[in-house]
Amino acid sequence: MQSENIVKLFTAENPSALIDRADLTECVTLLAKLCSGKQPMPILNHIRMASESGGIAFTATNLDIQAETSLVADVDARFSTALPAAALLKLMKKGTPSSTAILELLSDEADEDAARSVASKCAIQLAGTRFVLDALPTDDFPDPIRHMEGAKVQRFSVASAVLWNAIDGTIDAASTDQTRYYLNGVYIHNHNGYLRFVTTDGHRLYIQDTNVKTGKFEISAIVPTEGAKFVASLIDGYAGANPVKVEISSTVAVFVFRDIAVSLKLIDGTYPDYQRVIPAEPDKFATIAGGELSERVASLVECTGASTVKLKFAAEQLTISANGTSGGGTTGMDCDYQGDELEIAFDARYLRSAIEAASPDGRNMRFRLADAVSPATVSGSIGGWTGILMPSRA
């Protein structure tokens, strides 16, 4: 392996940093998710880097979501810059193979003392190849997202697998209707002494109860959908026993995991009393294989172009029918059903979403029903998950 001449490349004239290439690539990969390239301010397409004791602090933000982390590095105390996320990510993934990356700030200023604030370019050395990226001063970076001074902050921990499961199992039902902005996220709150996650778009309601005790603490926060998805992406593939530390105030939520702190601006609004739509005592019950139901519904919808699917429940048989732009179709499957015969219609997209959320492993799922015009309660193999599905007009 060819030696990387670090001594020759790592000069002292300009603020410089020597960083492990793999660590930097992983860091930039995650932070770049917040820098879409379509932000209203150029600085928001950049990742902020600033020296700190023992390394470099990294920050990315889109004004509503902020991610912060640190890497160990051999760094000049004057090192501070903001680099374009997309270009830096491409360079780290596609640039000349190397075990380290050397960053050197370049400035038009002759005065070294001024280099910190006016550096306009950053040279990046990967093995024997040198690249130069345009840079912006960190003074342009937005103010950090923080809890308001004096705010009451509730702090607790959630197992990473529990948090990922709660977000993944509810996020699909979050509304996108901007006129009811307070539904555009995941409602996290305490219910009967435990942490509960809720989403609804008016057509369906998804609830994920957890085993996280909240005690007497009052927790109430609407986490925006985009922020919840970003937190889930941080955990995805790393979910396990390690807890996620959570801080919630009236305006900000902070999630800390994998040495990354994600701060989110909460939706300012009051979540509706969703419990009013939960059926009290349905008297009809059906147990059915979720995987088979999903396949049969998907096949009917694809072949007929239908937007609505009818389910007819009888003693040991479920009949599924649909009529759409390409014609109609009917199929049946085994079903353990208790109650009077019932036919009920659902929006095909919402039904498929509920099936996948209730039974992602294809195992048995359960319907609790009252009549053709009342909401159906759905549950399955995911412990603590409940879905409320509004019927459609046939």
Score class of each variant (00 low, 15 high):
273 D>H: 07
274 Y>L: 03
275 Q>H: 13
276 R>L: 09
279 P>S: 15
280 A>V: 14
280 A>P: 01
283 D>H: 13
283 D>R: 11
283 D>W: 03
285 F>S: 13
285 F>C: 04
285 F>Y: 11
285 F>P: 02
286 A>S: 10
287 T>N: 08
288 I>Y: 02
289 A>K: 14
290 G>Q: 09
290 G>C: 06
292 E>Y: 01
292 E>M: 03
294 S>P: 00
294 S>E: 02
294 S>N: 04
297 V>D: 00
298 A>L: 03
303 C>Y: 02
307 S>Q: 14
307 S>P: 00
307 S>G: 15
308 T>Y: 06
308 T>D: 06
309 V>W: 01
310 K>D: 11
314 A>D: 11
317 Q>F: 01
318 L>M: 12
320 I>M: 10
321 S>K: 07
322 A>H: 05
324 G>M: 01
324 G>L: 09
325 T>C: 07
326 S>I: 02
326 S>F: 10
326 S>M: 14
327 G>V: 05
328 G>C: 04
328 G>P: 01
329 G>D: 07
329 G>C: 08
329 G>T: 07
330 T>C: 07
331 T>M: 12
331 T>F: 07
332 G>A: 12
332 G>Y: 00
333 M>W: 05
333 M>H: 04
334 D>E: 08
334 D>L: 08
334 D>Y: 00
336 D>K: 13
338 Q>E: 11
339 G>M: 12
340 D>Y: 04
340 D>P: 01
340 D>I: 06
340 D>F: 04
341 E>T: 14
342 L>H: 08
343 E>C: 07
344 I>Y: 02
346 F>G: 06
346 F>W: 02
347 D>V: 08
349 R>L: 11
351 L>I: 13
353 S>L: 11
353 S>Q: 14
354 A>G: 11
360 P>C: 03
363 R>D: 14
364 N>A: 14
365 M>Y: 06
365 M>V: 13
366 R>F: 03
368 R>W: 03
369 L>S: 06
370 A>Y: 12
371 D>R: 12
371 D>N: 15
